[in-house]
Design a protein around this nucleic acid. Structure first.
Lengths: 205, 205
DNA sequence: ATTAAAATCCGCTTTTTAGAGGATTGACTT
DNA sequence: AAGTCAATCCTCTAAAAAGCGGATTTTAAT
């Protein structure tokens, strides 16, 4: 019997998963949690085989949670739960010990396949996602604090001069940061820079 | 007894809603559909009070479906089902006859309240969303086919000349489209254009 | 048939960014 | 003490976009 644990703050998703898994002989949902704090309390009491982790939790994000679970309970297999727009974060999730991910738009069959495959020591990824996307996500560039700051201001529509004024530095400095951003993201202009940044969730509101 | 109909291509969401509504005295889920085509077949046979419509259906989008339902069955109340990133489309949905919207992250209570409120002739909107967001969503600019196309190519990092070559038109034409895009979005440069476009879900993949 | 909207085109000027090739300072690591 | 890296600054040139003022032709809707 595979003991499944669901961590997601969306009741719809939790209920949906429970409902889809109900009646499957070798699988049982033994607990659910709406946030990382709750999740930890449960993990200490309940014996878990597989944990589904939402990437956007209210307190800690799924990536951190995954890392922590892997640290304390290395035998628990974590599967990331994602929506379409969060695909690019999957690479980071895998680097932090997840052994699978499942899009919330997956079918019942995919869900069950994911659980069994992961339980038997394998990896699971939605087939709809090509390796290229995974590769892309793995190349999320490391940005310095300053670069992130400049990136945000660029996305807000500010020019180099405006940003320079705001940060009390020279426009050439901002220009350099901008060039480094283009280089790190492997793009050739601002438009694609902002696009990939947005897709990787680096631009909040 | 309130007859509820769910149209969503995500099994998780369908199952979640069914499961959350199961056992509520005055509400019953009488049918579900995974796309607009299926939905229409069911609507002709089954008596529906309230229809939950996903905004991103595989065939027709939820906005179109809402419009068509309102045209044929004016008594059916449509509630838009949205995820966080689709918030901005809600304005259009309401303009096409929806009387409510519900985020997929809503709680069971909100869900039930939405159904009852709408059934009794009222409107329902998640309280978590302020009017400012709704205002924003109402100002999602209407883009022509060509403008959407050009927007996508701009986001891909292409210059006016490159886009012009690809579309077999003059660079000045692309320039005009670009100006119109900036104007419609109320922004002053490409960076913020791509940012808001991305936030409004206009840039896929 | 008329009108409105969309899509197409042009020239001109100014501003902004990209591209190339540098250099210096300070902080932290080894 | 040497090395690495982030952050800062510089010049010059070329390319691209923004801002201005137009115009014509399809296409669709009433």
């Amino acid at each position: 019997m595979i003991n499944v644990f669901i961590v997601d703050d969306h009741p719809l998703v939790v209920e949906g998963l429970k409902s889809l898994l109900y009646g499957i002989d070798d699988i049982q949902v033994v607990a659910t949690a709406a946030n990382a704090f709750e999740a930890f309390e449960i993990l200490q009491k309940v014996n878990i085989d597989i944990a589904f982790l939402d990437i956007n939790l209210p307190d800690v994000n799924g990536i951190e949670l995954c890392k922590k679970i892997k640290g304390k309970w290395p035998n628990i297999k974590c599967i990331a739960l994602t929506t379409s727009n969060e695909r690019t974060i999957i690479g980071r999730m895998m680097q932090n010990g997840a052994v699978g991910y499942l899009m919330k738009s997956s079918s019942k069959d995919e869900l069950i396949r994911a659980i069994r495959q992961v339980y038997e020591g394998g990896y699971f990824m939605n087939v709809t996602m090509s390796e290229t996307v995974v590769d892309k996500s793995l190349t999320v560039p490391f940005l310095t604090r300053r670069e992130k700051e400049v990136l945000g201001l660029i996305a807000d529509g500010m020019t180099n001069v405006e940003i320079a004024d705001k940060l009390f530095v020279s426009p050439t400095t901002i220009k350099t940061h901008r060039e480094n951003l283009l280089m790190k993201f492997g793009v050739s202009n601002t438009a694609s820079l902002i696009k990939v940044a947005a897709q990787q969730g680096l631009l909040e509101e």
